[in-house]
Simulated assay, not measured.
Amino acid sequence: MNEEELREGLRSEMAGVTPPPPLSTTAALGAARRAHFRRRAVWASLGSAVVVLAVTGFAAVATPDGHVYEPAGRGPLVAPDTKKPWPTGPNGQPQEDRTARAGSKYDQGAHLLSEAVSVVPAGFSAPEDPPSLPAEQRTSRTHQAQFEARVDGVDVWSYSSSVAVTQHAAAGRLIVEVHDAGNPMPTEPCELARAFWGMRGDCQVETVGAARVGVVVRPDGDDRLDQWSAYRHPDGVVVFVAQGVRLDESRPALTKLPFSVPQLAALAVDERFHLK
């Protein structure tokens, strides 16, 4: 067989391949959510792109083009203790993976979601998913608690919540993510803001009382979210608050973001999100 015959044979084989059916929005969101939080286990100090969503489970959120929200960042090198099993659940047995599905950590994630819903501003709504909808298919209100690492014998967790924010037929998203003290994330406000899910962008420092908050006001080539703020409390707890004008491709995007830049900065400092 000569080269031309080989090429022709390959073209014939490719022509007979049936492309896979398009992935549904609901399935994509559910899969992304689960993958996001499972993969958030990798620390920012071990690489620039990871994922939780979180992420978050919550926790994870996908954009209409299939992107998965993936947290990452840089910080001092921390070697987590991986010799011990997953944290013990409320049944006295080790968890099956990083996600808490019951107990006090799970309750913290649920509490964070409740607080996130409470800050949705007037003029916007935060609808709930139908009660009959399976957890993995929910997109309006999600939360997750995830074990990140064991540092110096102490379990370090993160908590994530995602809230659909609607106005008439349009829908956007509010995300709040909290990391326990002991995390390896940066201290400088804009470095910290740019550590959120590995996203970069134009950052400015906002002053809220005595606090200095990093706010990315314009992402750099990343359309997962539109703005986000970051604050490290004196005790080491890190809070990220993010907003986006689009929830998914099934509904039109919001015509404006729910919060102004100063308001977004103030939310990162808000004690309601300072989980301890």
Results as ranks from 00 to 15, higher is better:
Asp97Ile: 02
Gly89Cys: 08
Gly109Cys: 04
Gly123Phe: 08
Gln93Glu: 13
Pro130Ala: 14
Pro85Leu: 06
Asp97Met: 04
Thr142Lys: 06
Val178Arg: 00
Ile175Trp: 02
Pro131Cys: 09
Pro94Phe: 05
Leu77Asn: 08
Ser104His: 13
Asp97Ala: 05
Asn91Cys: 06
His111Pro: 00
Pro184Ser: 11
Leu174Arg: 00
Ser132Ile: 02
Lys83Ser: 15
Arg74Met: 09
Arg194Gln: 14
Tyr159Asp: 02
His111Cys: 01
Pro184Met: 05
Ser114Arg: 15
Ser140Met: 13
Arg98Gly: 06
Cys190Asn: 10
Val120Phe: 07
Asn91Leu: 12
Gln146Asp: 14
Ala193Lys: 07
Val119Glu: 04
Ala72Met: 07
Glu148Met: 11
Ala122Gly: 12
Arg98Cys: 03
Glu148Leu: 14
Gly89Ile: 05
Ser140Cys: 10
Pro87Tyr: 05
Ala72Arg: 05
Tyr106Lys: 10
Ala126Lys: 00
Glu188Ser: 11
Ser104Gly: 09
Gln108Met: 10
Glu115Ile: 05
Pro94Cys: 08
Ser162Thr: 12
Thr99Asn: 09
Ala149Arg: 06
Met199Tyr: 04
Pro130Lys: 13
Tyr159Ser: 02
Gly198His: 03
Ala170Val: 03
Thr166Asp: 07
Gly89Trp: 07
Tyr159Gln: 03
Met185Asp: 11
Ser158Leu: 10
Ser104Glu: 15
Asp129Phe: 03
Gly198Asn: 07
Ala72Cys: 09
Gly89Val: 05
Met199Pro: 00
Phe196Ile: 02
His143Ala: 13
Glu96Lys: 15
Arg138Ala: 02
Trp197Leu: 07
Met185Tyr: 15
Tyr106Ser: 02
Val165Ile: 11
Ser118Asp: 13
Trp86Thr: 03
Thr139Val: 12
Asp152Val: 04
Ser160Asn: 11
Met199Arg: 11
Ser140Trp: 05
Gln93Thr: 09
Ser114Ile: 06
Ser162Asp: 08
Pro134Val: 07
Ala79Ile: 14
Ala145Cys: 12
Met199Lys: 10
Ala164Glu: 09
Val165Tyr: 00
Leu77Phe: 13
Pro90Arg: 09
Gly109Leu: 01
Glu136Phe: 11
Tyr159Pro: 02
Pro94Arg: 09
Leu113Glu: 00
Leu133Glu: 13
Arg138Trp: 02
Lys105Val: 05
Ala149Gln: 08
Ser104Gln: 14
Ser162Ile: 07
Gly73Val: 04
Lys105Asn: 13
Glu115Thr: 13
Val178Trp: 01
Asp180Met: 08
Asp155Glu: 15
Pro130Asn: 12
Pro87Phe: 06
Trp197Asp: 07
Ser104Tyr: 09
Leu192Asn: 02
Ala145Lys: 01
Ala171Val: 04
Asp152Gln: 15
Gly73Asn: 04
Asp180Thr: 06
Phe124His: 01
Pro131Thr: 06
Val176Lys: 00
Pro134Lys: 13
Gly123Met: 10
Leu192His: 05
Ala164Ser: 14
Asn183Pro: 01
Asp129Ala: 04
Val176Pro: 01
Thr187Asp: 15
Ala110Val: 10
Glu128His: 12
Phe124Trp: 09
Pro85Glu: 04
Trp197Ile: 06
Ala193Val: 11
Val178Gly: 00
Pro80Met: 06
Ala135His: 10
Leu112Glu: 00
Val78Lys: 09
Asp97Gln: 07
Glu148Ile: 08
Trp157Asp: 01
Ala195Trp: 00
Pro80Tyr: 03
Phe147Pro: 01
Gly73Arg: 05
Pro85Ile: 05
Lys105Met: 13
Met199Gln: 11
Ala126Pro: 01
Gly198Phe: 00
Ile175Arg: 02
Ser160Cys: 10
